[in-house]
Design a protein around this nucleic acid. Sequence first.
DNA 1: AGCTATGATTTGCC
DNA 2: GGCAAATCATAGCT
Length: 428
Amino acid sequence: MDDQPRLMHSSHGVGMAGHPGLAQHMQDGTGGADGEGRKQDIGDILQQIMTITDQSLDEAQARKHALNCHRMKPALFNVLCEIKEKTVLSIRGAQEEEPPDAQLMRLDNMLLAEGVSGPEKGGGSAAAAAAAAATGGAGSDNSAEHSDYRAKLTQIRQIYHTELEKYEQACNEFTTHVMNLLREQSRTRPISPKEIERMVNIIHRKFSSIQMQLKQSTCEAVMILRSRFLDARRKRRNFNKQATEILNEYFYSHLSNPYPSEEAKEELAKKCSITVSQVSNWFGNKRIRYKKNIGKFQEEANMYAARTAATATNVSTHGSQANSPSTPNSAGSAGSFNMNSGDLFMSVQSLNGDSYQGAQVGANVQSQVDTLRHVISQTGGYSESLAASQIYSPQGINANGGWQDAPTPSSVTSPTEGPGSVHSDTSN
DNA sequence: AGCTATGATTTGCC
DNA sequence: GGCAAATCATAGCT
């Protein structure tokens, strides 16, 4: 076709030379004289477009309307769109397909896990409970802190959702606005629906990056809250007296092997209203501290031994079992602590004979419980207790030597330091 | 304020 | 994963 050179000239170099679309549209007619007329049309249209900016507003408006109604308008519009498509938008289009953002996914997952996003109820508390369980703290004791945590989390959640809603609303508003604008402008500019769609995507991406910032700062807030809440050391509370007594009773009545089974730990935890991890912590601390300074714990050991012995005696006097209801061993489900009578009086090892009415208790025990017979002789001294325990508790000696390998029997029998004197816990 | 007691955490071992 | 040991950080007493 020889239209192209003419077009180029007549349009002052408007770049549509050799465009197949235009040729296509121009061939839509019947050709011949009609084709000549169309060439003229296009020349006119282009001329008008080029000069439209020089005209007054009213004039331009009228001209715009005329151009819009021009029969060649759709063809020209398509051509311009295609040209535009091939230049600017092709560059943009290349960047369009992004892989799902890993960072965003991580943030989303975290917010979901922390109960900030996702279902309203349960999420936060569940996360808090899980977090608490993870560190072994936060039993029923600190439900106040727990609810405080939840309240703060709810606050964060609310802020997050408010902001998110705001962003979404702004995004929608802006998108609608831009879409309307572009649709409006597409009457005078070559803007294809595809381009509008692209623009919408661009807007969404921009807004989602803002959203990501929101999510990020929310995550940070949750992390800070969590670290504060979960830093149990910051809010350490001593266990109540009853709990400590229960734990001590178990410890001293299982002194030969103070390693409660998982079940025993659970039982103790239940009784003391603390978590199993706290029980584990307690026994870990107790073992190490006892071992480091047996002398210091002698008095305590004596006391609990006496108590346990008294209880055992009491019960045995009344008939049935060696296990006292008040001891950890029997108060819960029967036999759950797998106590053997050998353990029961290992704690008497620290008795020095005169410090405690061992003879009296011993006599009672001896008369009632077969296994306790050995214990009575223990009141004489530690080495004897070892010998005695060996008889009925083969594990005893092992366990004794096993966990108490550091302190020698002599150090127990005749401690070089009195109770409550210098202690060797390096922490202090 | 200084000190000790104590629950929790960390580290390294098995 | 459970444990010992060391350490931290706070409670609670003087």
